[in-house]
């Protein structure tokens, strides 16, 4: 069974590490802790028994409680094999840069290099269109196709 635990955003890995360390010694049926990149503020705990949040192993800083009920295994399969973002964008897509010097800027995709996972972008708000090459994980898709 898989349960979702709410954490502070940004503390997911720390909470997962502490839970994994605590359950190792206490003999609770937790077999894996998953921190999907796309699910901010949540971690998924795989357990053979129902989670007992009263257990001292789950008294972890930055943890904000658990979601009632378990999650079907099929639903978390997409988190286990994350598809590269580059597969979902195409030429002409509008993306937002999420890191680097142009963070927060919107840009249009000019070219995609799938083997190197590079994307060539043109900043929308720039007066002169200058091509910028960034890695596929530095962008967030806003609009799949430009009109």
């Amino acid at each position: 069974m898989i349960y979702a635990i709410r954490t502070l955003v940004g503390q997911e890995k720390n909470v997962a590490r502490i839970i994994a360390r605590n359950v190792k010694d206490s003999g609770i049926g937790v077999s894996a802790v998953l921190v999907p990149e796309s699910l901010r503020g949540y971690i998924l705990v795989e357990s053979s028994t129902k989670l007992d949040l009263q257990n001292p192993a789950f008294k972890v800083p930055h943890m904000k409680g658990a979601i009632e009920g378990d999650i079907p295994y099929e639903e978390i399969k997409s988190f286990l094999k994350p598809e590269p973002i580059i597969a979902s964008i195409q030429k002409g897509s509008i993306v937002e840069l999420i890191s680097g010097p142009f963070k927060g800027e919107k840009a249009k995709v000019v070219r995609i290099d799938e083997s190197r996972e590079d994307v060539v972008l043109e900043l929308i708000e720039a007066a002169v269109p200058i091509p910028v090459t960034v890695k596929g994980d530095q962008i967030r898709l806003i609009q799949k196709e430009a009109d």
Partner: peptide, 19 residues
């Protein structure tokens, strides 16, 4: 260059680890 984070505590009991 990696993303996503998974801790396996007990690989024999975990369907995620088997997958």
């Amino acid at each position: 260059n990696w993303s996503g984070f998974l801790i396996i505590v007990d690989p024999d009991e975990s369907p995620i680890a088997q997958e």
